[in-house]
Amino acid sequence: MKRFENVHMEGLRNTMTEKELDSKLESAGQLQVRQLLQTMPEESLSLTWRSSLNEKLMASVETRRRKRRVAWFLSPALGIGLASVFAVVFLVKPNVTPEPAQSSSSSLEAKLVASHQDSVRYGEVTGAGLNQDEVIDGKSVTSVSTDYGEVDLGSL
């Protein structure tokens, strides 16, 4: 169809001037087609169609109102929110003093030092040859175990 139309359109352009085309359009046969078309009966739409359109129009009105309301509500709220976020981030600087970081290696060193000090103390109190379990409250076990009288020895 399109091919035929294009051929005819080209043909019309080549063979007819606009005046000739106008006079052709005013010919009796062409005008009769126009008359026929104008007398064609009109199809009417149902009441269901109309009420459905009304519902859609009302819905669109509601949607528009809601959007406007939300936009009205959100625009200042959004502005204030953004402004306060910027204020917090850029203007209010937190006054925090940096604490010296304790690395895991320093705590190990501290433990080693403490362990060394303990062993020195034990060594001073008990002398060489005693281990940690044999010492109670800085006294040697032997001094504690002499806590008996002569009577006890006699009963043996």
Binding site: E5, H8, M9, L12, R13, L21, L25, Q30, V33
Partner: peptide, 10 residues
Amino acid sequence: TVKSRLFLAR
């Protein structure tokens, strides 16, 4: 072009 189309359609 409108006129040509109208002529062909009729």
